[in-house]
Design a protein around this nucleic acid. Structure first.
Lengths: 359, 359
DNA sequence: ATGAAAGCGCTAACAT
DNA sequence: ATGTTAGCGCTTTCAT
């Protein structure tokens, strides 16, 4: 028999960490003069409880400040009401937005959000090896992680509903833009302006490559150039670590080269902003000396007057979360794929080259 | 007796959501020829298991892809190895950084992170009413929420270690800057440049006010003006919703007034950036027509050449997380307060007013 | 060093 | 409509 709260001696200096809830379902039941099952039924909105009883129990629970033990409930039902959300970084605008969109939808559906970041090689490898989500969540939502097939497989092994933003994968409900088309939009825009010497600041490519955004955009970049009879220069493909300063370093490198491009396509707006910073530091003006196109339409992009490929961000997080919830509700293995529209937003960072490039 | 995995019929169309793990501790025990207790001891690093046995069990567990059920373990021990992290928004740079800092430390200590956002009035009220963290987490970390006394009290009622970034509160281990000093630094800088007509774009102030950042900075702003014999104008205190466009609207409002300030102190860099955007749209140049000072030293602030009060952000999240972990380890109720240094970074957005203000 | 047994708090199938 | 009972999977005394 459990003691009632006032008889539990509290150590004033130390926590009873690991202790059980002070008031349990049995306490509520006893006070209400019913059995624990009735309390459970009443509180979970199950049928088979008279309105009067339910009412009384609800009030009593509130009065005693009772809340169910998630561990016990989870153990008994197998449901955790938690969704694992995996992102590479959380401190980038793009991911903050996308998590925010997902969070809102999950919360509204009664789920809590367990956040996992797996950005660098090490934490990523560790996440997929240990799968800390195991036994903790009812479903997993992967946000713009550019999963390798191997990683996707580990997740499939969880036998849980899976969601993905950024590309498609067998067994995942997903939401994604057409990266190829987005890239074409950007690069063709530069070519139409008269540029032929075009560089790209790339996104990071995970080890075992798949048909994922950084690869697709790079390929589409090269393909678009070739489609326009422009032979790409390998040294004009520079890798950019996903941050403003990463973009800055990438542009520094381009500017240090013997030949310089007249335009640059950046994998993401934050990289483009870094590029702008580098250009300014080097005294090159945009778009006079160099045109820049980004990707995402970051909230600062309008301010810095950056031409970019716009995609909805929050909405993608929200939609992906919703797909997952739908699957959970329907207990269905059937996945859904939602395509997302994109849009070239032309601003002041792109213009025709000063004179046509000599080669 | 549980069936072994291969005998569990899998429905190919629907999830067995709510099912229990496919391989449990008992399976491992049976295969290892020991009892569940020994497996438990072996896997949790408890003493009383021979090295050979422990070794064998560890390998077997890996082979069977066994992972403990967190619900069951949590129920038995009362420990969830989860920390609840509460932030107002996650899509703002500042919060992304601070969560990132906390996440890294928590993860390293073996904790998972449960993310709760409570930005707008409604979700905030709901969070503190329902306290969804109850029974889910071992501790709660509140990041820059500017808690009211009432809210802090709800949290204290959880009887769990509590952490706080941004201000101090009884019962919380905290990490915070000196907002008063930061504000003085910024405003005095403007005054020293010769400004006397200074406006402030404020932060949001929660309903039942406490000694929290938005209030402290506003008061310090007014006090600094008065200390310099400048009488503040009420209409030059404009509220800013915490976003770039919030800052933009605030500046729009200032520019629409009959009298206009020669300098503006913004509660945060993102508000300042919005102000810059508004100024540019109105054809006013910075710092010629108007000086701007922000707060935080956002990663874009250098690029937009914004004078600002710099504070470490990631580090504050990390430190707060560490304080919490220390408390958890020591099972101690003793809280710690860590002051954080700040620094005025003077850039190009501030200069003397064009001519001294006439009054 | 290891095993047996008794829970942890809640839920659900089966009574009544 | 409500109560009884038997677990959920793990941990932890207490034996041995």
């Amino acid at each position: 028999m459990r003691l009632s709260p006032q008889y539990i001696p509290r150590d004033l200096d130390s926590w009873s960490i690991g202790g059980q809830p002070v008031v349990g379902i049995e306490d509520v039941a006893r006070r209400a003069g019913v059995s624990p099952s009735t309390v459970s039924r009443a509180l979970r909105g199950r049928s088979g409880v008279s309105d009067r009883t339910r009412q009384r129990i609800t009030e009593l629970a509130a009065e005693l400040d009772y809340s169910i033990s998630r561990s016990a409930s989870g153990l008994a039902t197998g449901r955790t009401w938690c969704i694992g959300v995996v992102v590479p970084f959380i401190w980038r605008w793009f991911f903050g937005q996308i998590i925010g969109g997902a969070e809102q939808v999950l919360r509204a559906a009664g789920y809590d959000l367990m956040l996992y970041t797996a950005g660098d090689e090490e934490s990523r490898e560790r996440f997929f090896r240990e799968l800390p989500v195991r036994g903790r969540v009812d479903a997993v939502l992967v946000l713009s992680m550019d999963l390798t097939e191997q990683e996707a497989d580990r997740l499939r092994g969880l036998d849980l509903p899976l969601g993905l933003v950024g590309h498609e994968a067998e067994g995942f409900s997903s939401v994604h833009i057409d990266d190829r088309q987005g890239t074409r939009l950007a690069v063709q825009h530069l070519i139409n302006l008269g540029h032929r010497d075009i560089a790209m600041i790339q996104g990071l490519e995970p080890k075992p490559l798949g048909a994922i955004a950084p690869v697709i955009r790079r390929d589409a970049f090269l393909q678009t150039l070739r489609d326009n009879d422009v032979e790409p220069r390998p040294e004009w493909l520079v890798p950019g670590e996903f941050s403003i300063s990463g973009g800055e370093r990438a542009m520094d490198r381009l500017l240090a080269g013997a030949h310089q491009p007249t335009a640059v396509f950046a994998y993401a707006d934050e990289l483009a902003m870094g590029a702008l910073r580098s250009l300014r530091r080097h005294g090159r003006s945009v778009p006079e000396h160099m045109s820049i196109v980004g990707f995402d339409d970051h909230e600062m992009s309008e301010y810095v007057d950056l031409t970019t490929v716009a995609q909805p961000v929050r909405a993608q997080g929200a939609t992906a979360a919703q797909l997952l919830i739908d699957q959970l509700d329907a207990k269905s293995r059937k996945t859904t794929v939602v395509p997302v529209p994109i849009d070239l937003v032309v601003r002041g960072s792109t213009a025709p080259p000063r004179r046509s490039a000599e080669r």
